[in-house]
Design a protein around this nucleic acid. Structure first.
Lengths: 204, 204
DNA sequence: GGTCGGCGGTGACAAATGTCACCGGTGCCC
DNA sequence: GGGCACCGGTGACATTTGTCACCGCCGACC
């Protein structure tokens, strides 16, 4: 395999994306074949340029990195996907691995590390930042049922129960039961603290 | 002035900081004399290297960009300060200008723009991203009194009123009055929605 | 001096919320 | 078939909360 590694770079922050592209261009065996500033754009560029490795920012307009990764898995199975994140909460990592992401790292790594990881992933390997991995493991799985998670998510903006019930097409009593149960499982004093705790663990 | 512009770069994300340093190094008239990964480190490096321009990320461990900017203003008045932010909420901009920041821009600008803005700021000019400026102006000032803001901040983690009252050394009744007043001013249905709205406007 | 806004407080009341017990239905697994 | 967990719901109850009126005390401003 003497071809250069074809890389797709997706990040909504031009400054970072441009800088990254410049740095990766310094590596002899890497070529940035496409750049994107949003989720949908990343998908389009991937389809057009068929990169070997896609480096996706977690937070992007339109579709976030995980959604793009899930799509890419179906549309371009041979393309390896890596997620780069600013300040990553655990939970994202787990979801990322579930959609077939091969690399997951914070932006605190150095550029030369990034290049090395791209090569590793290209060769079929995996890389997960040790610190994020440790956090994810210690955080564990969400104790909430799917429905509890849904309702808690609807409660996230501080809406009163009546509104949540309407949006969830549930009885207000049921909503309160779910919220009470969720708050109990999370050790929160009320649903609002529960939202915060779930957010911190990446369960929301 | 044929000296090169001495730049301090502070960002907790190595990847970005390194990439930025590499890009700025390509400019003939700019020199990155120091890098920092945290607020306190930024202050130390600034004191040691006395840069002409400090480029600070808004969110950093220890002290955030605004706090560093405020300190620098006293300790190194001749050093111009610029703030770079990922996804900036309005309100930060206003506070930034109040502590004497000369440039305020999102990370969506290009590297060449950044270099140009560094030169502008170095020459005594100012630069504020037009989009952020528009948001800040339309957002306007906080309608909350200082005390209301304090109490709302204590309510931000979802604590019950009794706990807020204790932490604020206030009577529970007074706390409820402040929260009610704040929610009214912000058009929120309850204090939790009020917290969210205040956050979105950068008033918290 | 008077007015006004912010601060801190009290008391009372209505509404929202949290909590518990309990119901039926479903699907899964042993 | 019997457990068991999840879903959706009802009703009752105590607590928390939001809301309002009203109090005094400052300090600023006219």
């Amino acid at each position: 395999m003497n071809d250069r590694v074809r890389v797709l770079l997706a990040d909504d922050e031009h400054l970072i994306r441009g800088a990254l592209a410049a740095l990766l261009a310094l590596e002899d065996d890497l070529t940035v074949v496409a750049e994107a500033a949003s989720g949908p754009e990343a998908l389009a560029m991937a389809a057009a340029h068929r990169p070997d490795v896609a480096v996706l920012d977690l937070q992007m307009p339109g579709l976030d990195g995980l959604e793009v990764a899930a799509e890419l898995r179906h549309r371009l199975p041979e393309c390896r996907v890596m997620i780069v994140t600013g300040h990553g909460r655990p939970g994202y990592l787990k979801r990322a691995l579930q959609v077939g992401v091969r690399g997951f790292l914070p932006k605190t790594v150095s550029a030369s590390d990034l290049a090395g990881i791209i090569r590793t992933v290209r060769a079929g390997g995996r890389y997960v930042d040790p610190e994020l991995a440790a956090e994810a493991i210690s955080a564990g799985d969400s104790p909430l049922t799917p429905r509890e998670t849904d309702v808690l998510e609807l409660a996230a903006d501080g809406s009163p129960v009546a509104e949540i019930a309407e949006r969830a097409a549930l009885s207000p009593g049921t909503v309160r039961n779910y919220l009470s149960s969720a708050a109990g499982k999370l050790g929160a004093e009320n649903r609002h603290a529960a939202v915060r705790i779930a957010r911190e663990h990446g369960w929301l």
